[in-house]
Computed example of a mutant assay.
Amino acid sequence: MNTTSAAVASAATFVWLGMVLAISFLEAPLKFRAPGVTIPIGLGIGRLVFRALNLAETVLAVVLVVAVATGAAPAPVLGLTAAVAAVLLAQLAVVRPRLNRRSDRVLAGEEEGPRSRGHLAYVVLEVVKAGVLIALGVVLAAA
């Protein structure tokens, strides 16, 4: 893989990983433990934060794909890039719309039960995405 493409891909990968770790595994669970934060307030904040995170992730995914596509990347880099892009696409196209519909109901006062399966699916995909980003970063560092 050429040096410039590898550097850009590595930077995008590690910035993306840092954002996922900070938002999904720190901010999201902690916000509900803050004094005075109700479920509706936490959901409202979470929707804004995750909308911004997903936009940033999309930009980073595009940067990563372009860097990998133009850099004569080896097969492991191609496979991991495709995998992380697929996970993000699944989150954005399948899981997030379901979570948004449920949070709309909660915010409207219609529903406030336990976490949905959609939420658990999103968390599982976040764990998978973080693992793939770590693997991709390691492979890029060795390339």
Rank of each mutant, 00 (worst) to 15 (best):
R47L: 10
V132Q: 10
A75P: 05
V138N: 04
A6G: 15
I134C: 06
V127R: 10
V62R: 10
L64T: 11
L17E: 03
V65D: 07
V123W: 03
R101A: 11
Q91E: 07
V59D: 02
P40G: 01
A22G: 07
A72P: 14
G137H: 00
R33S: 14
T38M: 05
I39R: 13
T70V: 14
T58H: 08
P35C: 05
V94P: 03
A56D: 09
R117D: 14
L140V: 01
L140R: 00
G36P: 03
T4D: 15
A141D: 12
T58G: 15
N2K: 13
T13E: 02
G18A: 00
L88G: 02
A56R: 05
H119N: 06
L140Y: 00
E27A: 15
L80C: 00
R98L: 10
A73T: 04
R101W: 03
R117W: 13
A85F: 06
L80M: 01
L26S: 12
A108K: 07
G109A: 02
E57R: 09
A9M: 00
R102V: 13
A34Q: 07
V138S: 05
R51D: 14
V123R: 07
I45T: 10
F32H: 08
R117P: 15
E112F: 10
E57D: 14
V59H: 08
L64F: 10
P97G: 09
S10T: 11
G79V: 03
A85D: 04
L48A: 15
L92R: 13
L92E: 12
T81V: 00
P76R: 03
H119M: 05
V49A: 08
D104P: 05
A83G: 04
L21V: 07
V77A: 01
S103Y: 09
T58E: 09
I23E: 06
G113D: 09
G71C: 11
M1R: 13
G118L: 04
G44N: 07
P74F: 08
V63P: 04
A135W: 05
S5L: 14
V95G: 11
A72G: 15
G18S: 04
A85V: 12
A6S: 15
F32V: 01
